[in-house]
Amino acid sequence: MTKHHIYTMSFASVYPHYVTKAEKKGRTKTEVDEIIRWLTGYTQEELEAQLEKQTDFETFFAEAPQLNPSRALIKGVVCGVRVEDIKEPTMQEIRYLDKLVDELAKGKVMEKILRK
Rank of each mutant, 00 (worst) to 15 (best):
T43K: 04
T55F: 11
F11C: 06
L39G: 03
S10T: 09
T40G: 07
A64R: 02
L47G: 05
H17T: 09
I113S: 01
P69R: 03
W38T: 07
P89G: 03
T30K: 14
E31Q: 06
M110L: 14
F60K: 00
K112W: 13
L67A: 06
Q54E: 10
Q50D: 11
F57M: 15
L51G: 02
A62K: 10
T20W: 09
Y42S: 01
Y96G: 04
E111D: 10
A64H: 02
D102S: 08
Q54P: 06
A62L: 13
S13V: 15
K53I: 05
D98W: 00
K108M: 08
I35L: 05
T55H: 05
E46A: 15
G76T: 08
G26D: 03
G80N: 08
R115I: 12
K3I: 10
D56V: 04
L47E: 04
V83Y: 00
A12D: 12
E23K: 00
R27P: 02
T2K: 09
W38I: 10
C79L: 15
Y15H: 12
K87L: 13
A72D: 15
G76W: 05
K25A: 06
M91E: 05
I36P: 00
S70A: 11
E31K: 00
D102N: 09
K87C: 14
K24Y: 11
Y18W: 04
A12F: 09
A64Q: 03
M1K: 09
E52H: 14
V83E: 00
E45Q: 14
V83Q: 01
V78A: 08
D56F: 09
G26N: 03
E34L: 06
K116G: 09
V19C: 04
E34T: 08
T59I: 15
G26E: 04
M110Q: 08
V14W: 13
I86C: 07
N68G: 04
Q50S: 10
R95W: 03
L114Q: 02
V77E: 07
I74R: 05
V81R: 12
I94K: 02
R82F: 13
A105C: 01
